[in-house]
Write a protein that binds this DNA or RNA. Structure first.
Length: 127
DNA sequence: ATCATGACATGTT
DNA sequence: TAACATGCCATGA
């Protein structure tokens, strides 16, 4: 919704078609929407959601972690459990419920992982 | 192994 | 501008 431009619209489309009992990570959604690194942006879009036809609770964080839900993570977890997702404490088996990622058109963009990944080079300093 | 911190990438609001 | 419902990698404890 929001800007209804490409990315946001694509994200909504993707989320809308996540079947019950399955989940997708923010990163997966971003990837399917054509912006592999825009996981955070996806979260933001979800935040701005205002429609019931978008099952935002099926979008979770990586590693089988819950992720956020407007400050109500408990509800998110409950909704997922209600759909059959078995939680193990605060996490669940992502591999078992994650939907297949099918990237739709998008801008390939350099894979460079544009991350200089700041080699900390820490000389054992006390943190 | 798990959690925390530091850095950078990406797009909204 | 700076957050923010993130991800991934590296390192430290």
């Amino acid at each position: 919704v929001a800007t209804a431009d490409g990315f946001a619209a694509r994200v909504l489309s993707v989320v809308r078609r996540i079947p019950p009992g399955r989940v997708a990570t923010y990163g997966d959604v971003a990837r399917m929407a054509g912006r592999p690194r825009a996981a955070r942006a996806v979260g933001n879009i979800m935040k701005g959601l205002s429609r019931p036809d978008i099952p935002a609770h099926r979008v979770v964080a990586a590693g089988g972690r819950l992720g956020g839900y407007g400050g109500n993570e408990a509800l998110k977890r409950a909704l997922l459990q209600a759909e059959g997702v078995a939680f193990r404490g605060t996490r669940f088996n992502l591999n078992a419920y994650r939907i297949a990622v099918v990237r739709t058109g998008g801008t390939p963009r350099s894979r460079g992982r544009g991350n200089a990944r700041a080699r900390p080079s820490r000389l054992k300093t006390r943190r």
